[in-house]
Design a protein around this nucleic acid. Structure first.
Lengths: 191, 191, 191, 191
DNA sequence: AATGAATGAGCCTTCATTCAT
DNA sequence: CATGAATGAAGGCTCATTCAT
């Protein structure tokens, strides 16, 4: 791929990220092309349909977020690294408003996204959790993917298809309340 | 209001609920009218713009969900009533995908919705929590509205404006993990 | 016709006149019904289509304007009566903006209107002109209908079909200019 | 601007002129696009709203009509050139039926039109009048703009705001009649 | 290869007209 | 008879997508 072509593709992805966040994933293609400083034809050349563009933006942001896990691990103590990254992850999820419905629309461009998501995020989070478990700060039993889904699904989509997950999420929250009934927590109250 | 008019209004609201859930709040008006078995004109007569319709559907579902709290309280033990209703509430929130952005779009039709939401849900949940706190099953300190927001915001909107809330939410989840480190929970594991 | 029916018909005609003046002859039927304080059904009962209503309003206003000629004749000197009524007539024509195109649309409801127009206005104006000609204030040769058309057509419609009439109208104006070249007019200058 | 774009713009303006004359300025956009042989999108691209299109057509016809003044001046004797152009001008005005109300609708697209109108027509007519005044065929005192308004306003709009103008217009007509009372005109009679 | 002009399908909305109440 | 609720055709407008330049 030629240098200018690569530059254009980058510009389009960056523009799409901004526009999707500003106007949603249904934003006019023109707006994205304008933001990227290219013609719509150029955009279509690289991303023949909206789903491909959406998927590409998604992957790019997944990469960025997953990469941040190592930074946190290097710069903070285990529990704080975990907490920090989860917040970073929530920010990632937060920008995905409206993507959830697209994701489950059955478009083939989105088919590989869940796998991609898991392949990147699960090891990143698991590694943070392992570090925290080794110091005894957290229990060892929890599953990284389950936590990703717990936080992520809460934000992205209500899993109408798996009510038992909802129950488990609520179970956790209620456990928090119950345990606080018998403990004087040193963590911040609220929620 | 004439009998047939009332019937049509009901049909439209029911249809809108279904269509919004199926195709999002941006679904074509025609689709809603078709689902309701009325002409588009009828729909426009009652709901001059989409926002009014969306708001009406929202209120209707809030009413239904809030009303369910009493049923749970009557039929279950306090903690189970609380758990049950929170799940019911999550289902309500679950269908609100895509509404969040609309809600904060500044449309005047949505202005009163947050107040309406709180006025209905807060007493309903508080009453369930009080009952559970009286039996000692949960701590007494937690705030009903905060819990509503915790669960609801997680699903409905990424609170860009209050990152501290996100942190508190994560704090709760991590507390859950931390406490489980020192306890042998009788509740279901996971999450 | 029952008294209330007559009252309704009057109300509709008066309302239509107001609304046509305010919003043009294409104004929504609803607006007229609202202004008249009746339901649209009532309006349709009396005037099955818009053209009939327009024609009825037209006739009513023709009647009112023609009747004014006698008042002017009774209250003013001949030339001033003529001048006064022509101005009144222009006001009548002035509210007919947009009617012209309707009038020549070929709708059967409008077919009799030109005849009606002439039958009412020509004698009225002729009588005023005769009175002024008898005092020698104006020449005797001019034709009342021609003058009606001159003023009226100028306002209402450009007679694409009779360019010679346009030429004659221009002829008059130019005559006015030419004659003023050789006369010192005591009338107001300008135009 | 690309060659095809310019060609399309021309086609649209020409089509709009025809359709406006045939069906009024409220004619369906589709009809204009069809007449022009372009898609509606093309039309909207150049003229984002109807007013802009109407204004553009208006300017185009003003230009054409003003340009005709020079032709008349070159090919005819002064008085005949004046007469000829006034008739041409009336034809211009004649096609403006229904534009008057639009013109005074307050739409910003029309704001500059009166100025444009005057800047083009006043010098054109003044020059014709000067030539005719120099040969003594017409008086020198009359104002070109006033004459434009007299002829134009008669056709285009009922000057509800300036009844004195109406009176002056009627004054001219009556003057014409009065003067004919004492003169044996060599011009065609009538009107 | 890049551009953006052209296209037209499709959605929103209004409103004339009908007809149940 | 009066009313105004319901209908749906029709027109405005946007924007995804194609393709000439």
């Amino acid at each position: 791929m030629r240098a200018d072509a690569r530059r254009n593709e980058d510009a389009v992805l960056e523009a799409a990220k901004i526009v999707f966040a500003r106007s949603g994933v249904d934003a006019p293609v023109r707006e994205i092309a304008l933001q990227a400083g290219v013609g719509v034809g150029t955009l279509y050349r690289r991303f023949p349909n909206r789903a491909e563009l959406v998927a590409a933006v998604f992957r790019r942001e997944v990469d960025a977020c997953a990469a941040a896990a190592e930074d946190f691990a290097a710069e903070r103590a285990p529990l704080e690294a975990l907490r920090g990254w989860l917040i970073r992850y929530m920010q990632f999820v937060a920008t995905k408003q409206g993507l959830a419905s697209a994701l489950y629309s059955g478009d083939p461009a989105f088919e590989t996204l869940p796998t991609y998501f898991r392949a990147r995020f699960e090891p990143a989070l698991q590694s943070l959790m392992n570090a925290a478990a080794e110091t005894g700060e957290i229990g060892a039993g929890a599953d990284a993917y389950d936590l990703l889904r717990t936080v992520g699904n809460l934000c992205m989509v209500a899993d109408a298809d798996s009510p038992c997950r909802s129950e488990r999420m609520v179970g956790l929250l209620i456990d928090g309340l119950r345990y606080r009934a018998g403990t004087s927590s040193e963590s911040e109250r609220g929620a």
